[in-house]
Amino acid sequence: MNKRQIIIPGDVLSEDVSIAGDGTYVRDGKVYASLYGILSEHNKIRVVPLSGKYIPVRGDVIIGIVKEVTFSNWIVDIGSPYDGLLHISEYPRRINSENMSKHLKVGETILTQVKELDPMMKVELTMRDRRLKPIRSGRIFELSPSKIPRLIGHGGSMISLIKKETNCSIIAGENGRVWIDGGDCNIDFAIDAITKIEQESHIPGLTDRLSDFFEGAKTQENESDKEYEKESILDEILE
């Protein structure tokens, strides 16, 4: 039962300093919790927060929104207390400084990656990767960044389940923004599923409940199909 124990800042977690992980601090040879969240004991002792702001980490793939174009940088809102800087040389192609706003306008959404981070929290971004690109279709959905690992699930199990069931393409940015796209897929349905994950992420057995959620939706769909059939039969009779 200890697996999902709720921890409050200042709780003593262990006397073994070597296993102190994220969300903890060490004082006088003891490990204390520094966050309000759920205890996780797996090699290292950690406290997983239930909410919180996105703090950039090097290598994170994130979704940003351009908020300013300067001489050689795009300033990008990355949903964090710190702004991201995308230098002109980090754009996928070589472009001229005068044409910057032709390629990425203010308000445009981009899939980008944190390239470098200094102690002053200057966040340098890059788009020099095949997978990174401007986002010009689909929808962006925002949830708490602390829920992203839950959305992806164990080995990507959760996100592939949603992808399979809704036929959408889903990319989860580490900063809590999720890009949902696809031809004739059901984006609203995918958002419902993600909302469910956000609300219930701290409750055990989430994957199973989500499978049930999709099962339930399917049966409902069938029923509405039947009703539709009935109606069309009725239409035929009336004609």
Partner: peptide, 28 residues
């Protein structure tokens, strides 16, 4: 349901890469 739970830590360690690589297959 607690017994059915996958351990949080493992899912945390999951790299985001896997989700992105799958994108191209799903098309669109």
């Amino acid at each position: 349901e607690v017994e059915l739970v996958e351990i949080i830590a493992e899912s945390e360690e999951t790299s985001i890469e896997s989700t992105i690589d799958n994108t191209d297959e799903s098309g669109g």
